[in-house]
């Protein structure tokens, strides 16, 4: 009897051992997996490099070019006579280039004041997870604009420098979740020449931009700049744009309504002359198409 029990016990042990070696849920990968967390930069905080008018915390991938066509139509409140503003359009063509993961440059030309603009954008710190995680992206933008219209008064001595304006911006942005991104962008615009002596040359403002993703390919966006100085009653206003980003695969469409006409920092921050009151706003769109200039080696 004792012998039988022992035999049975031995067989039991054997069967447990053999079962173990044939078990299906063995995790072989566990033996080789690298468990240390890796730094991963948070991407796709915005669909595009612009929230609507202002720069976003997003960067172009190195080796890509973003060709941007921007339109701002006429005032919406003129009604059917002007086909809700669609009869008139102001536009900007832009070319933006991704140089490094955190370095981007761009140039553009607007019909408004026949203005050329260019900028350089660099992020010393980007939002990341894993090792060396950081909660936000901090980026700096420095840009310049040049008005190429004929001088208003050719009878006086005009200086080339009067055509120029500069802007400097810091972007602090965070993608809180897949759905929500918010950013703050303190901006200083310096106009070399202002039309009236009462107007300041340096205008300080604070940008508030954000995105609320509605689906994988659509997002609700807003872009507001609060002017700390340089607001004159009934002359200029804080620019507010509200829009929808639609991604179609190759293109990103940014459809919006805004009280701003200008499409560079100088123009939309210091020269927004219509207000949301009385619906003196306009429809507009940004069309972005990204081209791969330098193909990624596989």
């Amino acid at each position: 009897m004792k012998q039988l029990l022992l035999n049975g016990f031995a067989i039991l042990i054997l069967s447990i051992i053999s079962l173990n070696s044939f078990a299906q849920d063995v995790d072989l990968l566990d033996l080789v997996e690298d468990k240390t967390p890796k730094k991963e930069i948070v991407k796709n905080a915005f669909k595009s490099i612009r929230v609507i008018n202002g720069h976003s915390m997003e960067f172009l991938s190195p080796g890509t070019m973003d060709f941007r066509i921007l339109h701002r139509f006429g005032p919406l409140n003129q009604g059917t006579k002007n086909f809700f503003g669609l009869d008139q359009a102001s536009m900007r063509l832009g070319f933006d280039f991704g140089i490094l993961q955190n370095l981007q440059i761009g140039v553009g030309r607007s019909t408004f004041k026949k203005e050329l603009d260019g900028y350089i954008k660099y992020a010393p710190i980007r939002q990341a997870t894993g090792a060396h995680a950081f909660p936000a992206t901090i980026a700096f933008v420095a840009g310049m604009t040049m008005n190429t219209l004929d001088f208003a008064d050719p009878t006086v001595t005009n200086y080339f420098s009067s055509r120029l304006a500069y802007y400097f911006q810091t972007i602090i942005g965070r993608k809180f979740s897949e759905g929500l991104t918010l950013q703050l962008s303190p901006t200083m615009v310096h106009n070399n020449l202002v039309p009236l002596s009462t107007q300041p040359n340096d205008v300080y403002s604070l940008g508030l931009g954000g995105r609320l993703k509605m689906s994988k390919r659509m997002a609700f966006t807003w872009d507001y700049y609060y002017l700390i100085n340089g607001i004159e009653d009934d002359v200029n206003y804080n620019p507010l744009s509200i829009g929808v980003d639609i991604e179609t695969g190759g293109h990103v469409f940014q459809l919006h309504v805004s009280n701003a006409v200008g499409m560079n920092e100088r123009a939309f921050i210091t020269e927004t002359t219509s207000s949301w009151e009385n619906f003196d706003i306009r429809m507009g769109f940004n069309l972005s198409r990204i081209f791969q200039i330098k193909k990624h080696k596989k």
């Binding site: 990968l29 991938s61 994988k216 193909k295 990624h296």
Partner: peptide
């Protein structure tokens, strides 16, 4: 057994890779 990170797929075009992941 195999395992791979989806972000480890390299495409010729950066935008394609972005869309693939997002």
């Amino acid at each position: 057994q195999f395992s791979c990170l989806m972000k480890g797929f390299e495409f010729e075009r950066a935008l394609m890779m972005e869309h693939f992941n997002e």
